[in-house]
Simulated assay, not measured.
Amino acid sequence: MEIIIALGVIALLITFLVIQYNRLIRLNVAVDESFAQIEVQLKRRADLIPNLVETVKGYAEHEKSTFDAVVSARAKATSATSFTDVAAADGMLTQALRGLLAVAEAYPDLKASANFLSLQDELSTTENKVSFARQFYNDTVRELNTAVKTVPTNFFAGFAKVSEREFYEVEDPQSRQAPNVKF
């Protein structure tokens, strides 16, 4: 009888350990997945930019520095690989797009262009998706970090090779605001 009780206790303990380990692994995978979603939305935004730049270029030939800044920021954003580089490139690209849209404000014909309006609408939708993806990522990071720091899962974090993750923050405080788009 004592052996059965001991085996039952051991089975419960093993079950508890497996549950905690699996929880940490699931949270870690969720953070990886949510960061991948940020990258998907940033790629979508980067894919819209050449069309937007070309549309604005047709109306504002002399705004070369603005176009160069957007193209350069897009190149950095598409080549960024590490978490820190992606966040920094995201901030730079947001700033460059803000400058491009400011240039567009000076050209009434451009603002009335159906192509430009369509691209601007796509960009606005994409910015909302990027914002949501950032929020979702930070929510999953918060959940993972809480699990890594709290009992009982903190005892298993090292064994599961799971550690705290950084929150996704845009470097430039101004880029934390959505681009100001006026019609």
Rank of each mutant, 00 (worst) to 15 (best):
L24G: 02
G8S: 12
F155R: 12
A102I: 12
L93W: 01
A106T: 08
N128E: 15
E54C: 13
E2F: 15
Y59K: 01
L100Y: 07
V141H: 10
N22I: 00
K111V: 00
S72N: 15
G8P: 00
L117P: 08
D172K: 08
A104S: 03
D90N: 11
Q20Y: 00
R26Y: 03
T15R: 07
T94C: 13
K57L: 09
V151R: 05
V71D: 02
D90Y: 05
R26D: 00
L117M: 13
N138Y: 06
V9E: 11
I49C: 08
Y21W: 11
Q37E: 12
T140L: 10
L17M: 12
L7R: 01
G8R: 01
A102H: 04
Q37M: 13
I49N: 06
Y137W: 03
S65I: 07
A112N: 14
D90F: 01
Y21D: 00
A89G: 06
Y137Q: 05
F83E: 13
T55G: 00
K57E: 11
A88P: 07
A114P: 02
E61D: 11
A30C: 05
P179Q: 08
K57C: 03
I49P: 08
P108I: 08
D68V: 12
G58H: 01
L13P: 11
E2M: 14
Y59M: 00
A46N: 09
A6L: 14
A106S: 11
R23A: 08
I19V: 14
E166S: 07
F35D: 14
F167W: 00
I4S: 14
V181C: 10
G58Q: 04
T153I: 02
N138R: 11
E54A: 14
F83K: 10
K149C: 12
S124D: 11
R26W: 00
E105T: 03
N138M: 07
L24T: 00
I25A: 07
P108Q: 05
R44A: 13
Q95V: 15
A106G: 08
F35P: 09
R134Q: 04
R45P: 09
V141W: 09
A160I: 03
A73F: 02
P50H: 04
R26L: 02
E54R: 13
E169W: 09
D139T: 10
T66N: 02
L27H: 02
A88T: 13
V56I: 08
A46G: 10
L119V: 02
V148T: 05
G58E: 06
T94Q: 14
V56M: 04
G58S: 07
A11C: 12
F35M: 14
V148H: 02
E127C: 10
E122I: 10
K129Y: 01
Y21H: 06
A87S: 06
H62Q: 11
D85P: 04
A80K: 01
R74N: 02
N145D: 15
F159S: 04
M1I: 08
E61A: 14
H62D: 12
T146S: 12
K64D: 06
P108E: 13
G99Q: 08
N115S: 07
A157Q: 05
R98F: 05
R23T: 08
A104R: 01
T146E: 09
R26K: 11
T126M: 07
I14A: 14
V29A: 04
D121L: 04
L117F: 06
E127D: 10
R134L: 02
A89L: 03
